[in-house]
Structure formats: C-alpha cells, structure tokens
Simulated assay, not measured.
Amino acid sequence: MSLSTSTPPRLPCGAEFAQLADQLWHGVAAGDEYAATEIVLRALDDGIEPESVLLDVIAAVQGKVGEEWAANRISVAQEHAATSINERAVAALALHPAARRTPTLGRITVACVDGEWHALPARMVAEVLKLRGWQVDYLGAQVPAPHLISHLHTTKADAVALSSSIATRLPTAHAAITACQAVGVPVLVGGAAFGPDGRYARLLGAEAWAPDARTAADRLAGGPLPRPQVDHQQMDDLPHLADQEYTMVTRNSDNLVRTVFHALEDAFPAMRAYDDMQRERTAEDLAHIVEFLATALYLGDEKLFTWFITWTAQILVARGVPAQSLPPALNLFARELKDFPRAARILQRGVEALTTAPRTTTGKPA
C-alpha cells in the first residue's frame, strides 16, 4: 500500500496517549516484551502517527522507568530490562509499514558519545529523523571519535546529531564535537548531559542544541546548520583549563578514591559496620564524586557538581543509605586537594549545598 493512498495518520487526544502509555508501562514493568510490542503495533494499525507513538508513548514510558529507578521502586536490573523492552518496541515500530519513508532530505549521522551507553534517546532521534524524510546513519552507543570521523569521511553527512545523557562524558563530547567540526561537519547535540537549557552545548561550541527528538527534527527542518568555525582550539573555548587542575584530578582519581575511602572509616564511623556490598557501593559513589568534580573543573561550572551531590543525596536516602556520609567524604577530598583552589572551592560548595538543601516531608532534599 502506497503512502499516497493510505488513510492519513490521526493524532489522538492527550487522554488516549496517557492510556496507551499506561498500557505500555504495565507491559514493560511486567517484563512482557510481546505485550509491549503488541500495544505499539496496534496503535500504529489504528492509524496513530508513528512519531507520536515514539515520543508521546514510548518515550514517556522510558521517562517513567528512570523515575521509578530513582525512587528505588525498581532495581537496576529491572531498569535495564525495561529499557531493553522499550528498545524492542522502537525496533518494531521502525519496521511497521506506517513508519516507512523514502528519504527526500539530506543525510544525518546519529551517534552517542564515546562512553555513553544510554542509546535509546539517540535511537529516538534517529527514528524521528527518518520519519521526517532524512537518510539516517544510526551508529548506536559508545562511538569513539576516530570511528565517527572515519564514518563522516565515507558518507559526507550534512550534520551529526550527538547524544549524551551522562555529564561526565562532556569532555569526551567536546573532543568529538571539535573533531567533527575539523572535517567540516556541523554538530547538533542533545541529551541530559548538556544541561536543561543547553548551556554546555554552547560552552563546548556545538552549532545547535535540542532538548528532545521532536525539537531536534524541527531544528534540522528549519535549514542547514551553520558551517563550523575551525580556527580555534579547545583551550580557547575553556581558558580555565590552563591551571591543569582537571588534568591532575583525572590522572590521580584512583589514588584519590582509595585514600578517601580508607580515611572515611574514621570520619564516618558507621562505615565500619558496612558489609562487603555496602563498602563496594561506597567506593563506587566516591568514584562518581571524583568524576563529577573533574567534569565541573573541565567546564568551570560549580553548579554541575552541586546538582550532582544533592541528587546523590536524594538517591541514597531513597535507598535507606544515610546521606550524612557525603559531607565528610567531600571534606576529605578537599583535604587531599588543598593545593587545587578551584577543586577545593567546588567541594566546599557541595558541602554547603548538602547542608542548606530544603527538605521534603519524606526527609529528602526537595
């Protein structure tokens, strides 16, 4: 059946979207990929616009998956399983006759930053762009910059859509952005890593930023991205890196974590009663603190670290772990980094954020 003779897709009301999302959530939460896929395919058979199924149903359910994990109502394993089912639903949608489009526009490469394993947001962008008429090369998760550049040389893409959900991947994203621009390809970035208002996209020199897949497609439909300006280096973008604090903290991260982990037993005596699993999780949390500290140093943005540390406190409280262990840990890191003024200041801001964050009725920071 050709698109020219098919029934035009319909756009259901918000209540119908909510009902479909609720049905899909129950299938996803039950681990039933067959039921989840059937819900998506039935919606398409009923004539609902594929882009709406993608973004107003599947993406909405994936957002709930993240919320349920953060609230400790599902485990990490359940979160991974749910995400996998949503990925299967997207794949089923992409193969449905209602989603088939003949490319009439240019060519876009969609990829995740190296080290970024949250591929579903990028996949959503890729599928929406296909529906809008673009030829899309979807490269998936964790794409090393050299591989990305090699692909661009081969395909002559009009633009790259680069995705990252984890802020600690921003230094790597900066390198990828710069590499794409060096071969003349403009970059549109998106994902939670770049900030809710795209502040880090601008800081890192991307030609465009979009908060979601629909906005990304609209931006690309509005005309070609500006050609890259390649007469600068990363140090010109981020002159504060000249103090080498980012480099030194990154190089010594393992030693920092090890030193603070052992010192924390004295600074936070409750840790002495931790079992092996709790001690392992504490070491992981300390490693994340160093990663976000390094990223805040790279970006020159204290707010990134204070956001992360208050979010971490909420996650710990939701899991029944005392967040009181965080200020002693930050103070110990500050002691080890006393010769690094920017790092010490960022850590102090973290302590202040923990002690001044408003509390909800559940005891969690608001």
Rank of each mutant, 00 (worst) to 15 (best):
D231V: 08
P228W: 05
E265A: 15
L326D: 05
M248L: 13
R227E: 06
Q278W: 04
T247D: 10
L203R: 08
T306E: 00
M235C: 10
A242F: 11
A294Q: 04
M235K: 12
L299C: 08
V321D: 02
V230R: 11
T312K: 15
R214D: 12
T215F: 09
W307S: 12
P328W: 13
A213M: 05
Q229V: 14
E265T: 15
G222Y: 07
D237R: 15
T282G: 09
W209C: 01
D236G: 05
G222V: 02
A313E: 13
M271Q: 14
R279D: 02
A208M: 13
I346C: 01
Q278F: 03
D266A: 15
G223A: 11
D339C: 08
D236E: 11
P226D: 00
E265D: 15
A267T: 08
W209G: 07
R227G: 06
A283Y: 08
T282L: 07
D218S: 15
A267Y: 07
A221P: 02
T282W: 07
M248E: 13
D237P: 01
A263L: 06
R335F: 14
R279G: 03
V321M: 06
T282V: 12
L286D: 00
A213L: 10
V257T: 10
E302A: 14
A343V: 10
M235H: 14
A287R: 10
E280D: 14
G223P: 11
A213P: 09
V260K: 02
A210W: 06
I309Y: 06
L304W: 13
V321N: 02
P228R: 04
E284R: 13
R272P: 07
I289D: 02
R345M: 09
G222C: 08
A329M: 07
T282K: 05
T306I: 06
L299I: 02
S325Q: 15
A217E: 00
A267F: 06
R272I: 13
P239R: 04
Y274F: 14
A318V: 02
V321L: 05
H262E: 10
G320H: 11
E280P: 06
A267C: 10
F292H: 10
R319G: 08
L297S: 11
R227D: 06
R342E: 02
D275H: 13
A201R: 08
Q324S: 13
A267V: 09
E207I: 02
Q234S: 12
G300V: 03
L241C: 05
D236P: 08
R251W: 03
V249G: 01
R345H: 00
T282M: 12
E291Y: 12
T295W: 01
V249L: 03
Q229Y: 04
Y274V: 07
F333S: 03
R258E: 03
I346L: 04
V317L: 14
T250K: 08
W307K: 15
A283T: 14
R272D: 10
G320Q: 01
T215C: 01
E291K: 05
R279Y: 04
W209P: 07
A323I: 13
D254I: 01
L256K: 03
P224N: 10
E336S: 07
R319S: 09
W307T: 12
R258F: 01
L286H: 02
L286Q: 04
E336N: 09
R219D: 06
N331R: 14
L203D: 07
